[in-house]
């Protein structure tokens, strides 16, 4: 199976197999009116199987979200069919309004208009904790 290469846009490669749709929904890609291709279970020498997302438009993506969902992914920015930038992915220091705190005693459960903020607690284990109550993200 082949998908034509894109002219201007973004390719998110090396997504662990099965994760593409999660990322697709979290990034809100269904709302974009440009062509978006989701490739699943592509053979990969590195991962065995992987997923790929190709977006055929020069859009802005929430890179924190990409790196949180798929810390091992690579993101390539394409202009005139050439890769002009390969973005290094690393776990973001903070995640804003991506996770929801599960602690029923946390102030985020009652306070209106509050942002859900999680901070990277341990880069090794990728553990995030709520900045308000220190509860581990599930």
């Amino acid at each position: 199976m082949r998908i034509d290469s894109i002219k201007n846009g973004i390719v998110i490669d090396h997504i662990p197999a099965g994760k593409a749709m999660t990322l697709y929904h979290m990034l809100g890609l269904s709302a974009f009116d440009c062509p978006v291709a989701v490739l699943q279970n592509v053979n990969s020498p590195k991962l065995g199987k992987k997923d790929i997302i190709k977006i055929d438009a020069a859009v802005e993506l929430d890179m924190d979200l990409v790196s949180f969902v798929c810390p091992k992914a690579t993101v390539c920015i394409i202009r005139d069919e050439k890769v002009i930038e390969k973005k290094e992915i690393s776990l973001p220091q903070t995640l804003t309004d991506i996770l929801v705190c599960k602690n029923p005693r946390c102030i985020t459960t009652t306070e209106q208009g509050i942002h859900q903020i999680f901070r990277l607690h341990s880069p090794d284990s990728g553990e995030y904790r709520c900045i308000y109550c220190d509860t581990k993200a599930k």
Binding site: N103, R105, C106, I107, Y132, T135
Partner: peptide, 24 residues
């Protein structure tokens, strides 16, 4: 509620002292 004083500190013009936030 845990974290309430931290929320307060984000909106306050004066110093906040946490005098206990739940079991936190």
């Amino acid at each position: 509620k845990e974290g309430a004083p931290m929320v307060a500190s984000m909106h306050s013009l004066i110093p906040i002292i946490n005098a206990g936030d739940g079991g936190h």
